[in-house]
Computed example of a mutant assay.
Amino acid sequence: MHYLGNPDYAHDGSDRVGVLLVNHGSPAAPETGPVRRYLRSFLSDPRLVELPRWFWWPLLNGIVLLSRPPRTARKYRRIWTEAGSPIDRISAELLEKLRERCDVLYGGRLQLALGMSYGQPSIAAGLDELRNAGCTRVLVLPLYPQYTAVTVGSVFDLATRALQRWRWVPELRFVNGYADQPEYIAALAESLREHWARHGRAQRLLLSFHSLPQAYADAGDPYPCFCEKTARLLAAELGLADDQYTVAYQSRFGRGQWLQPYTEELLDAWREDGVRSVDLICPGFAVDNLETLEEIQLDYAPRFAAGGGRLRLVPCLNAGEGQLATLEALLRQQLRGWEDALKPARLVPPIGASAGR
């Protein structure tokens, strides 16, 4: 195997620290071919589909990747902009704003890069960017507040697989979630307060998280516990009673049982019961994406409106101040002990030089 290294590394300088932000990613274009390649990468991940390969591969390649890409491409076209996919654009904007913030905090000595689990730039490419910048200490920060093996576990797999090709393996730290981070809860609460100040409060408040196969939770994945914890803390921050908000799960795939209640079915039931207004927030998504902009805003909202109601989507934290404050707090916490590498470099005297000279 050929290992990646930096032959021109300056050994007389100080260590450098790098942070890799990771998000989910998207296809390169909203067309069938790129979407098929994206889905193949996504649905081939054993963390996502825990089926025997001999059983899953024929289904994936013989059925799913033939029927699903055209439908998914149409969904992406509904939200695609001249700047590309929203998740890619907003993630890049977030990286730049956080970089500006960190340049002030650390005097330009903290290197930041972006990687996508299933898109470009890849996690391996983001790590290579940090390696080329001379980083020997790396913090991987997945933008998934609630841990699940399907997302955060997959990021760990992809990052460590990429690092196996490094000649000089960095000192590594990994954030596996921040469901109860105070700054994160405060940011979610402030986004709802701002929404209510502009639009007033709806009859119901729905906290919609991406779903997970029930079998994964039964096998020990703590994801639903973290979702419920975020919901409880957010309700407490807003002073809400238990009957003033509801947690549901969206974006299920396939015919198996997933975490319930299902967002789609709950909204249908509320509409039939005469509920006329719903505020919906997706705390599990760091930035807006296909599941918020297309599934919620362009699918669920018109269906709810057809019954005479109004479904209002509260934007994700995106690249706003609340998101930046959350990530800054996480960095301050996670970078403790590495402060020596974040100070101005000290010149190291050549070997053999007299200490008195």
Rank of each mutant, 00 (worst) to 15 (best):
L163D: 06
D340G: 12
D299N: 11
Q297K: 06
S117Q: 12
L94V: 10
Y300L: 13
L39M: 07
N289E: 12
L267M: 05
Q146L: 02
L266M: 09
G352P: 03
L158Y: 05
D45H: 10
V314K: 00
A28Q: 14
A124D: 04
E50P: 03
S154N: 03
R89S: 12
G200V: 02
R37A: 06
L317F: 04
V314T: 01
S208P: 05
L112C: 03
N132P: 10
R271P: 07
P86N: 04
Q164G: 09
G254V: 00
E295A: 00
D288T: 09
R332M: 08
A341K: 07
L317E: 04
G119R: 08
V150N: 08
L240M: 11
A269H: 10
V348Y: 09
L130R: 07
T151N: 02
N132L: 15
G5K: 13
D279K: 13
A305F: 03
L317T: 00
E295M: 00
R101A: 13
Y300N: 07
W168M: 11
A341D: 10
G5M: 09
G107E: 04
T160L: 04
P52N: 11
E100W: 13
A186F: 08
L163I: 08
S26Q: 03
A133W: 06
A305L: 05
S117G: 09
Q164S: 06
A319P: 05
A162W: 02
L327Q: 01
W258G: 01
L206N: 05
V287H: 04
F253Q: 01
E295T: 00
L112I: 01
P86V: 00
H199E: 01
Y178I: 06
V287D: 02
L324S: 09
R332E: 09
Y76Q: 07
S191P: 10
L327A: 00
R303T: 05
L206R: 08
A217M: 07
E321N: 04
L293C: 07
P34K: 00
A353I: 06
V247R: 02
R53N: 08
E228V: 09
G322N: 05
P302N: 07
V138C: 07
G107S: 01
N132R: 15
G320N: 08
Q260M: 07
I63R: 12
L240Q: 08
L110G: 01
L172I: 03
G307I: 13
A29R: 11
L114K: 03
P52T: 06
Q257T: 14
P121I: 05
R357T: 15
I90D: 09
C282F: 03
L114M: 12
M1L: 11
